[in-house]
Amino acid sequence: MDYSLQNMLVALGQLLLGGLFVFTGLNNFGPLGDRAAAGLKARGIPSPREVLKVASAFEVVAGACLMLGAMVAPAALALAFYTVVASYVLSNFWQQPLGETREVMHRTFIANIAIVGGLLLAAAQAL
């Protein structure tokens, strides 16, 4: 087994990125899921609880793939696409009036785009 610094950094990056999605997905099956489902409903998403369950299951499975180093490129690309779509739908700061809510949503959107960057790097490294 190769224990080079590069391989350790790649493994750590995959662990952290994947862990973010696993953690978030699992949390949505608990009490925090009620708040998330309410947010989906407020944005006009039909069957918000069911959509949340499917999305959360996807997050857990794809995130676990990243963490375990299994099917890294497809998992990372799928999570990148998912994150872009979710950010567009849920962090649509451009539709908010100026103020604190818009600023929070803008920061969330920017952070999500940075996560997409990390996912694209993980996918590129795995190809």
Score class of each variant (00 low, 15 high):
Asp2Ser: 15
Leu9Gln: 15
Leu20Ala: 14
Phe81Leu: 15
Pro46Asn: 10
Phe58Tyr: 02
Ala57Pro: 00
Ala86His: 02
Gly18Ala: 11
Leu20Ser: 15
Ala62Arg: 03
Glu50Ser: 05
Ala57Glu: 00
Ala75Cys: 04
Ile45Lys: 06
Met8Phe: 10
Ala75Asp: 06
Ala37Val: 04
Ala36Gly: 06
Ala55Lys: 01
Ala37Gln: 08
Met71Asp: 09
Gly30Cys: 05
Leu16Ser: 14
Leu16His: 10
Arg43His: 05
Gly13Arg: 15
Val89Lys: 15
Val54Gly: 02
Val61His: 04
Leu77His: 09
Val89Arg: 15
Ala76Met: 03
Ser47Leu: 11
Gly33Pro: 00
Ala37Thr: 00
Leu20Ile: 12
Ala55Cys: 04
Leu16Pro: 08
Pro74Tyr: 11
Asn7Pro: 01
Leu20Phe: 14
Leu16Gln: 11
Gly19Pro: 09
Ala80Ile: 05
Ala70Leu: 13
Leu68Gly: 02
Met1Leu: 13
Leu68Pro: 06
Gly44Val: 07
Ala42Glu: 08
Gly19Met: 15
Val10Glu: 11
Val72Asp: 11
Leu12Asn: 14
Ala78Met: 13
Ala64Leu: 07
Val72Ser: 08
Leu16Tyr: 08
Leu26Ile: 14
Met1Glu: 11
Asp34Tyr: 06
Gly30Ala: 12
Phe81Lys: 07
Asn7Gln: 15
Ala75His: 06
Leu20Trp: 10
Glu50Cys: 02
Ala11His: 07
Tyr3Ala: 14
Tyr82Asn: 10
Ala70Met: 13
Ala55His: 02
Met67Glu: 01
Lys53Trp: 02
Leu12Lys: 15
Met8Gly: 07
Asp34Leu: 12
Ala80Asn: 04
Ile45Trp: 03
Pro74Thr: 09
Ser4Gln: 14
Ala57Ile: 01
Ala42Asn: 05
Ser87Asn: 12
Pro74His: 09
Lys41Ser: 01
Glu59Ile: 01
Pro48Val: 02
Ala86Val: 12
Lys53Ala: 03
Ala38Glu: 09
Leu52Asn: 03
Phe58Val: 00
Arg35Ile: 04
Gly19Cys: 12
Ala55Gln: 03
Met71Gly: 07
Val22Gly: 12
Val51Leu: 05
Pro48Gln: 05
Ala86Cys: 10
Phe58Pro: 04
Met71Trp: 13
Phe58Leu: 07
Leu40Ala: 04
Pro48Ala: 07
Arg49Val: 03
Ala36Val: 06
Leu52Gly: 04
Ser47Arg: 10
Val89Gly: 10
Phe29Lys: 10
